[in-house]
């Protein structure tokens, strides 16, 4: 699994991921209060200037925008038709700036740093009774399961192909889910057996 992260040592890379997420939220909010087209152009240029600062090229900036390109064009045209060119260019610029800023955050922070930031961000909830240890376990487990489920999914698909059912989503999803849930029971047992959390309560059990 390859994340969009681009390793590097720039000042932007060295900022804590949490700070970058907060920065993104603030920039996003700020952009909504900027209405003037000239100011929005300045905002967009400022965000673009962050790319070389982070050791990234303008090509990276374009790559970030590419998946949105069609939507951006449709949006600007729709706005131009409905509300005139000024609103149209304004909202196009605003959206581009926002997405480019978000792109910087993702390109300069590793997935594990981002998840660390999420865990840290959630830790104050510990006092409200949220079990941060469990959230952290869930994050790791999900990363562990994604390749595993993809592998099981491929197996199921092969089995269904043999029966000519490989294009039926139901025929793929049901065996995948049932197998996954069955695995889940044993995985939970294994986690408990390795001393996670407190003792499980006595009770009826489905496994044999």
């Amino acid at each position: 699994m390859i994340a969009a992260y681009r390793p590097g040592t720039s000042i932007v890379h060295r900022l804590p991921a949490g700070a970058k997420i907060v920065g993104l939220a603030m920039a996003g909010t700020f952009l909504f209060f900027v209405a003037n087209v000239a100011s929005l152009v300045v905002c967009l240029l400022a965000v673009l200037a962050l790319y070389p600062l982070a050791g990234l090229s303008l090509r990276d900036a374009l790559a970030t925008l590419r998946p949105l390109f069609v939507i951006l064009v449709i949006l600007v045209l729709a706005h131009a038709w409905l509300n005139g060119w000024e609103v149209a260019s304004g909202s196009g610029l605003r959206l581009a700036a926002l997405v480019l800023f978000a792109g910087i955050v993702t390109l300069t922070s590793s997935a594990s740093a981002m998840m660390g930031a999420i865990e840290t961000g959630l830790s104050p909830l510990g006092r409200l009774g949220v079990d941060v240890e469990k959230i952290s376990l869930a994050l790791s487990l999900a990363l562990r399961f994604i390749p595993m489920i993809a592998a099981v999914g491929a197996e199921v698909r092969e089995a269904q192909r043999a029966r000519g059912l490989d294009t039926s989503l139901v025929a793929l999803a049901v065996p995948l889910i049932v197998r996954t849930l069955k695995m889940g029971e044993e995985i939970a047992d294994a986690i408990d057996a390795r001393g996670f959390g407190t003792t499980r309560k006595d009770g009826p059990d489905r496994s044999t």
């Binding site: 376990l137 790791s140 487990l141 990363l143 562990r144 595993m148 695995m183 044993e186 995985i187 047992d189 294994a190 986690i191 057996a193 390795r194």
Partner: peptide
């Protein structure tokens, strides 16, 4: 300690 039949179901971290 407990070692399960299928190690895939025992490995917790990526």
């Amino acid at each position: 300690g407990f070692v399960f039949q299928n190690p895939d179901n025992q490995i917790v971290y990526p």
